[in-house]
Simulated assay, not measured.
Amino acid sequence: MAAAIKETNDPQSVHFFEGVEKLLEIWFTSRPCGTTEDPDTDKEKHDLRNIPRQKWESLLKIVRCEIISFCRNDQMDAYVLSESSMFVSKRRLILKTCGTTTPLQCLEPLLQLVEQYTGFEEVEDVFYSRKNYKKPELQISPHQAFEEEVALLDTFFDDGEAYCLGSVDSDCWYLYTLNRQKCSDIKREPDQTLEILMTNLDPEVMAIFTRDLSSSAAEATVKSGIEKLIPNMIIDDFLFEPCGYSMNGLSKSGAPELPDGCYMTIHITPEPDFSYVSFESNIPQASYTEVIRRVLDTFKPGKFVVTVFANKESVATEMPRELDQADNFTFGGDWLRHDVQYCRFKNYDLTCAFYSKFPS
Rank of each mutant, 00 (worst) to 15 (best):
T193W: 15
V308D: 00
D40A: 11
L178G: 06
E219K: 15
E25W: 04
L93D: 03
P259K: 11
K134L: 05
R337S: 02
I68H: 08
Y342K: 10
K252P: 00
S85Q: 08
P320I: 00
Q116F: 00
P256L: 01
P109W: 01
F146V: 04
H46F: 10
H338A: 06
V88R: 09
E318V: 02
P284V: 01
Q105S: 14
P109T: 01
V277C: 14
D185H: 15
S58E: 11
A217T: 06
E257V: 01
S215N: 14
F17K: 15
P256Y: 03
F70G: 03
P136N: 11
E257P: 01
Y355M: 02
E7N: 15
K22R: 15
K131L: 00
E44A: 15
E124Q: 07
E108N: 12
D191E: 15
T97G: 04
K55Y: 00
A255S: 10
I292V: 08
N347A: 07
A78K: 11
T8A: 08
L197D: 07
F238L: 07
E322A: 12
S129Y: 06
G332S: 08
N248E: 04
V168D: 10
S184D: 13
E195Y: 11
E189L: 15
S85R: 12
A162R: 12
T97S: 07
G225E: 05
P231I: 12
T317E: 04
V305N: 10
V291A: 11
E290F: 09
Q325V: 13
V114Y: 01
I234V: 06
V340D: 03
D334W: 04
S287F: 03
S82F: 04
T35A: 08
I226H: 06
P231H: 15
Q192G: 05
L239I: 05
A217H: 06
V308A: 00
T210F: 12
E25C: 09
V306E: 08
L175M: 14
E108M: 10
P231V: 14
